[in-house]
Design a protein around this nucleic acid. Structure first.
Lengths: 206, 206
DNA sequence: CTTGACACGAGACGATCGTCTCATTATACG
DNA sequence: CGTATAATGAGACGATCGTCTCGTGTCAAG
C-alpha cells in the first residue's frame, strides 16, 4: 500500500498543465480563438485530460498569454540611475504599452475569457484570477522617489496609474475611441506624468 | 407589382430588432449569460429570426446593455450653474460610476462579447461596434470652461478622461487590483481632478 | 518485482452554436 | 380586395462544448 502526503505526481501534472498552456498561447498568437480540441491536440493530450485541468475553454485561454511575454522589468531601469519618478514611470508605461500592443490578439482573448467567467459564473463567487504584473512594475518605477510621497498620495497614485497601464486602456483606445496606437501612447504619457506631478505636489504642500 | 426604394418593412424590422435587444438586456440583468434560444423565446421570436438580425450571440449581447441605462446627462448639470470644470467632471464621473457598477453583470457580458468578436474575427476587419457615451458626457462637463483650455490640451484631457470614465476601469479595480467600489470611486475622483488641473495649468502657462 | 493508486485515452451523451432549406404568415401596393 | 414580396417559423445539419464512464498505461512505495 502506498503512503504519501504531497500531491501525487506533481511533476507529471505540472508538465501536462504547462504543455496545455503553452499550446494555447502558441495557437492564440495569430488572434484565432482555438477550440479546446485544437489546444489538446497541439499539446499532444486528449480532450478529456484538458478538461481535467481547466473547467472550460475560457479558463484555459485566460492563463495562456500570461506566461508568454514576461520580461524582467529590472532590466528597464538597470542601465541608468535616473531617480526622476516622472521619467521612470513614463518609461515603464512605454514598455508595458509595447508588450500589450504586441500581444494584442492574445490579450483580447484572455480579457474576454476572464470577463465571461466572472459574469456567467456568478454562482460561485470566484473572481477571475487575473495576474497583476502592473503594480510591481509601477512600484519599481516609483521606488527611488518613494520617500518623496506622502503615504496616502502614494497609494492613490499607484492605483490611478494601474488604470492607465495595462491592457484595459488599450480596449478604450481601440474599440471605444478608435484612436491610433501612437495617439494612445502620447495621451497615456501625458496622463501618467500629470498624475505623478500631482501626487508629488500634494505631498510637498500641506 | 410593387415599387419601393426604401428598406421594405422598416417598422416591422425595427420592432423585432428592438424586442430582441430588450429581451437580451432583461435576461442579462442577473449576470447569467443567456443562450440565443432563451433570448429568442423571451422576445417571442424564432431562433432563425434572431440569427437574421445578429451574426452571433456575442453581437446580440454586445448591444443589449447599451439601450438599458441611458440617462440624460443634461439633467446632471441642469439645476446648478457651476462652471468649475474640475467639479463638473468629478460629478460626471460619479454618475458614470454609478451607472457602471449598477449594471456590472450586464456590462461584463457586453465587454466579453465585443472583445471575443474582435479577437476571433480578425479576418474581417470589422472592429467591434462599441457605442461611445463617455465622450459626449465629458464634453458636456467641460463645455462651460472650454475656452480656458488650449486646443491640444483639451484633446489630450478628454481622451485621458475617457480611460478613467466607463467600464474598463471597473475591470481593473475588480479583477486586477481587487479593490472596493468606494476605493475605486475615490481614486478616480482624485485622478480626474488632477488631470483637469494639469490641463488647465499647461493652458495658462506658455 | 509486485501492486495499488493515479494520470491518461477513448468515446458516448445532451446542449448550444451557426448555417441552411423550405413552408407559412404578414405587409403594402395596385 | 387580391397578390407579390418580405419577414418569419419550423426544423435538419455538423461542429463544439462540458460531463460522464470505463478501460489502459504508468509511476513509485514496499
Amino acid at each position: 500500500m502506498a503512503k504519501r502526503k504531497p500531491p501525487e505526481r506533481a511533476n507529471q501534472r505540472y508538465r501536462t498543465r504547462k504543455d496545455l498552456i503553452d499550446a494555447a498561447g502558441r495557437l492564440m498568437k495569430n488572434g484565432h480563438k482555438p477550440s479546446l480540441e485544437e489546444v489538446a491536440a497541439a499539446a499532444r493530450v486528449s480532450r478529456a485530460t484538458a478538461y481535467r485541468y481547466f473547467p472550460n475553454v475560457e479558463a484555459l485561454l485566460a492563463e495562456a498569454p500570461l506566461d508568454a511575454g514576461a520580461p524582467d522589468w529590472d532590466a528597464l531601469f538597470a542601465g541608468d540611475g535616473s531617480t526622476d519618478p516622472e521619467e521612470r514611470v513614463d518609461r515603464a508605461e512605454a514598455a508595458m504599452h509595447r508588450l500589450v500592443y504586441d500581444n494584442e490578439a492574445a490579450i483580447r482573448l484572455m480579457l474576454s475569457a476572464t470577463l465571461a467567467r466572472a459574469a456567467g459564473e456568478n454562482a460561485d463567487e470566484t473572481v477571475p484570477y487575473r495576474q497583476n504584473r502592473r503594480t510591481p512594475l509601477i512600484d519599481a518605477a516609483l521606488a527611488p522617489a518613494r520617500t518623496r510621497f506622502k503615504k496616502g498620495s502614494y497609494g492613490r497614485l499607484r492605483t490611478a496609474l494601474a488604470m492607465i497601464f495595462g491592457s484595459e486602456s488599450m480596449v478604450v483606445f481601440r474599440d471605444v475611441l478608435r484612436l491610433d496606437e501612437t495617439v494612445a501612447r502620447d495621451v497615456k504619457s501625458w496622463a501618467v506624468r500629470a498624475l505623478v506631478r500631482a501626487a508629488l505636489a500634494e505631498s510637498r504642500a500641506r
